[in-house]
Design a protein around this nucleic acid. Structure first.
Length: 891
RNA sequence: GGGCGGCUAGCUCAGCGGUAGAGCGGCUGGUUUACACCCAGUAGGUCGGGGGUUCGAUCCCCUCGCCGCCCACCA
């Protein structure tokens, strides 16, 4: 016999080990089986599982388990990402904490070795945490972005794109992170609004006044960059400056003479209408500088300290110190025309958190615009679909305005760029050193010394190849043939640009096919204040603690049930407890079945069941199986969870098992046998349907019930057949019959409560003015009603008996057609007349009933209520008829 | 500036043209041998405001207001 609770702590590791040992996570060999593949969004190799992973991986696992049970050859391919900047940051922090030599002191090789060591120590954490969640990925195929195979794929892609002209080296402004001393992509730049100020500076005219004018006032939020100014721009049509265009200004600090240029970029509406131009330190100014052939003076070093291009009094100064120093200097010179406080957006590095500098450097770029075209088209034509569909708008918007992708990073942890430079700076891009040497030999006619590019690639470059690099590309492996393209990608909207878009570009370019047919965008799990959870903010909820306390199944069900949220999921522990209770409820239902010897019967055919109750639950099971199947096919995880919850708790437990009790305790052996077999069958269906969401508890019950009796199980539940039940098993007559019974019992319970009938007291139920159908039904279900409604007896009467308390019966509600609605209102009025209840035994109520005023008033209420309802129905009918008439008139 | 979400019971959320829902919390009752991680009952909402379409609007349209996210820009 089952214990009265499921014990996740001991069962989960045991069951997971059994699945793994049975090889259940590997795609089945059957060549005829349809392939279904998912690649995991690779978490950081050194990371640990956060609540967002729990959501994302639960949904993937639900799909994987569902499709596996449907007989497909399922591959869920796991792996991890080297996460260049994030990992390097972690290790550097560790080095700092240890107080030993830092990254630069160690040198590149020693540092990279140190990172590998840290990777060896900490990797495996997240994999084990995924196991705790129940993730059924095929660990035998696990990949890491820096594996040799994946690295070879990266080199091949880089080289090919280079030779196709889609990767190139360019000197332009990049987003420079002075903390890491590396370029980062536009996507890695955040734009928080911070306090700042406009500093109004006057620049005197170099060659004396022009008319009355002796100076031009400009405003800036970044005084420190003024040392790199090489012009001041005004709008070509700005009347105020017509006479000044082409004149020179004397730079107040450097003394450099800088021209006043006419450029549309200057907005006459803003400030004085004149704007200082610092081409090497501002993206807009860079464009202006190019248009006017201005000198581009870089005044920062890699740490964003002022370099030797500036007067010695400022050289070496930090940029923020420089801001104060320069403002002070301008004031001293009498050229500060005011400081105006403001709030404005300032670029910050998403990892480092420091202010990003536009910085003039040589970097490698991917021509994203060309690669984006097929990726846009694939979504337009439906070759790849977003679920929910809305997200395609976001995708299109970005893809259609895509900028060159800066892929080089001045880091040490990552894929080193396969480019080498000859003594004269000539670039050779090849997959291997041998190939490079050969190319160089061909170019120079002899062997020369080559120097490899110091930079590594953006982490997302290798991630972009993930769906095919993990399957062995560029080798033509059987996995690649069978499992590419993948079926569904499950990921968060925060990486649509970073990852989804780039996988689309690379997949289409190199595989000539989309990397996935569908992408399900899951919500972001946020903390109580709606903030995105992140390690750096320290507001992370630990899913492992929740698993420890409430079990993986409870957390998984919660994630599934809440996955419908459009944007945010705010997680509450109470909710998880509620779903833990749901698991326990099913567990106890199974226990009840055991106690009542509801054992599975060999060859039992639900099509053959006779009793109304069994025919009814059969239909309900069919409907649930259908609803869950449809929901999971459509990634409507929340709908699937809701259907399961309602069916198992509110239908199977609350009504079927309750209604089965009198049968199971009765004398009719045939009915008893049928009900036992049926209960066992329905329970099995519950286990199957719930398994993708709650794999542990269901697998445990699957085994426990088999051990208890009945035919031997053909397999573990994880690979059992998904219920595909015939529509014909839905029995309308049984549905109507049980529906009636449920309504009646519900009404009687409600009335008993209103009349303060204690649960221990048994009151007779009297049917007043019952028609033939009702009488027949009542006769048929007398025992059930007596049990469930705690009646002492069930009687019929043609008229209201003296002392009867009349009441209006309720009825089930649901989605109704217009016609049904009218019928319902009429039916309600009819029902109200039909059923009455006589309260017995209870002194309090008897007193009420003995009071003729009470009875008379109650009767009047019923009559009045019915009148109102009939009037409502008539009114609705009249309105409809007029609407119909108008429609017909139009038609 | 452009785009996208959200605003429904005390809390967390579902519903998205047909008599306002769930879970949790509240209240009342419960020694019904599957389950107190339970059972039965019950209170609590003018579905953010205002217009419009409709026989009928929480749901569709317009508009306003908060809250939040994304993109772009900011001298």
């Amino acid at each position: 016999m089952l214990q009265n609770r499921f014990d996740p702590k001991t069962a989960e590791p045991r069951l997971y080990a059994q699945w793994e040992a049975a090889g259940a996570f590997a795609p089945k060999d059957d060549p005829n089986a349809e392939a279904f593949s998912i690649v995991i969004p690779p978490p950081n190799v050194t990371g640990s599982l956060h609540i967002g992973h729990a959501l994302n991986n639960t949904l993937q696992d639900v799909l994987a388990r569902f499709e596996r049970m449907r007989g497909k050859a399922v591959l869920w391919l796991p792996g991890t990402d080297h996460a260049g900047i994030a990992t390097q940051m972690v290790v550097e922090r560790m080095l700092a904490a240890e107080g030993g030599p830092g990254r630069r002191d160690m040198g590149r090789d020693a540092f990279v070795e140190r990172v590998w060591k840290w990777k060896a120590e900490s990797s495996g954490t997240i994999q084990n945490q995924l196991r705790r969640l129940g993730a059924s990925c095929d660990w035998s195929r696990e990949r890491f972005t820096l594996d040799e195979g994946l690295s070879a794929a990266v080199r091949k892609v880089f080289v090919q794109l280079y030779k196709e002209g889609l990767i190139y080296r360019d000197k332009r402004l990049v987003n420079w992170d002075p903390h890491f001393q590396t370029a980062i992509s536009d996507l890695e730049v955040l734009q928080p609004t911070v306090d700042g100020a406009y500093y109004h500076f006057a620049y005197p005219l170099a060659d004396g006044p022009v008319g009355e004018v002796t100076e031009v006032v400009v405003a800036t939020t970044r005084p420190e960059t003024m040392l790199g100014d090489t012009a001041v721009a005004v709008h070509p049509t700005d009347e105020r400056y017509q006479g000044l265009i082409g004149k020179l200004l004397a730079h107040p600090i450097t003394g450099r003479k800088i021209p006043i240029v006419a450029d549309e970029y200057a907005d006459p509406e803003k400030g004085s209408g004149a704007v200082k131009i610092t081409p090497a330190h501002d993206f807009n100014d860079f464009q202006v500088g190019k248009r006017h052939g201005l000198e581009m003076i870089n005044i920062f070093d890699a740490y964003a300290r002022l370099n030797d291009e500036v007067p010695t009094e400022f050289a070496g100064m930090d940029r923020f110190d420089a801001r104060r120093a320069i403002t002070a200097k301008m004031e001293e010179l009498g050229l500060l025309r005011g400081i105006e406080k403001t709030r404005h957006a300032v670029p910050h590095g998403d990892r480092s958190g420091v202010v990003i500098e536009p910085f003039l450097t040589d970097q490698w770029y991917v021509n994203a615009e060309v690669l984006a075209q097929p990726a846009i088209k694939a979504v337009e034509t439906g070759d790849m679909a977003f679920v929910p569909k809305n997200w395609e708008k976001t995708y299109f918007e970005w893809m259609r305005n895509i900028e060159p992708w800066c892929v080089s990073r001045q880091l040490w942890w990552g894929h080193r760029i396969p480019a080498w430079y000859g003594p004269d700076g000539h670039v050779f891009v090849e997959e291997t050193e041998e190939a490079v040497r050969a190319a160089a030999r061909a170019h120079y006619g002899s062997d020369v010394e080559l120097r490899q590019d110091e930079d590594v690639l953006d982490t997302w470059f290798s991630s972009a190849l993930w769906p095919f690099s993990t399957m062995g590309w560029p080798e033509e492996t059987s996995d690649l043939k069978r499992f590419y393209p993948t079926h569904t990608l499950v990921t968060g909207f925060d990486i649509i640009f970073f990852w989804v878009a780039r996988m689309m570009m690379m997949g289409l370019h190199f595989m000539d096919d989309v990397p996935f047919k569908r992408v399900f965008i899951n919500a972001l799990v946020r903390d109580a204040s709606g903030q995105k959870m992140s390690k750096s903010k320290g507001n992370v909820m630990d899913p492992l603690e929740l698993v420890d306390e409430l079990g993986a199944d409870a957390l998984r069900f919660t994630m599934t049930a809440m996955s419908g949220a459009a944007r945010d999921i705010k997680l509450s522990k109470q909710r998880i407890e509620g779903y833990r209770n749901f698991g326990t409820k099913l567990w106890n239902a199974a226990r009840f079945c055991q106690m009542n010897e509801c054992v599975r019967v060999e060859g039992f055919d639900p099509a053959e069941v006779k009793s109304t109750l069994n025919r009814w639950i059969r239909g309900e099971t069919v409907k649930t199986a259908e609803a869950v199947t449809k929901a999971l096919e459509a990634c409507a995880f929340d709908d699937a969870a809701a259907s399961l919850y309602r069916f198992i708790w509110n239908v199977f437990c609350d009504w079927y098992l309750e209604l089965a009790k009198p049968v199971l305790n009765g004398e009719d052996e045939a009915a008893k046998a049928e009900t036992r077999a049926m209960a066992a069958w329905v329970l099995d269906q519950c286990l199957k349907l719930l398994h993708p969401v709650m794999p542990f508890l269901t697998e445990e019950l699957w085994a426990e019930l088999a051990a208890f009796g009945g035919p031997k199980r053909g397999s573990m539940l994880i690979v059992a057949d998904w219920p595909a039940l015939p529509q014909a098993w839905i029995d309308a007559e049984a549905e109507a019959e049980i529906g009636w019974l449920v309504d009646l019992v519900t009404d009687v319970r409600s009335i008993r409560s209103e009349m303060n009938v204690p649960p221990s007291a048994r009151a007779p139920i009297v049917l007043v003015g019952a028609n033939a159908v009702t009488r027949e039904r009542l006769a048929r279900h007398r025992d059930l009603i007596v049990t469930l409604a705690r009646a002492s007896d069930v009687k019929e009467a043609d008229a209201v008996p003296a002392g009867a308390a009349p009441f209006a019966a309720g009825e089930a509600t649901g989605a109704l057609s217009i016609a049904e609605f009218i019928d319902l209102v009429a039916e309600r009025a009819r029902l109200a007349k039909e059923i009455g209840v006589l309260d017995g035994d209870i002194e309090k109520t008897r007193k009420k009933l003995d009071n003729p005023d009470f009875v008379a008033r109650a009767k009047e209420e019923v009559v009045e209520e019915n009148r109102e309802r009939l009037a409502e129905a008539e009114e609705a009918k009249a309105k409809l008829q007029s609407a119909l008439a108008r429609l017909e008139a139009v038609a």
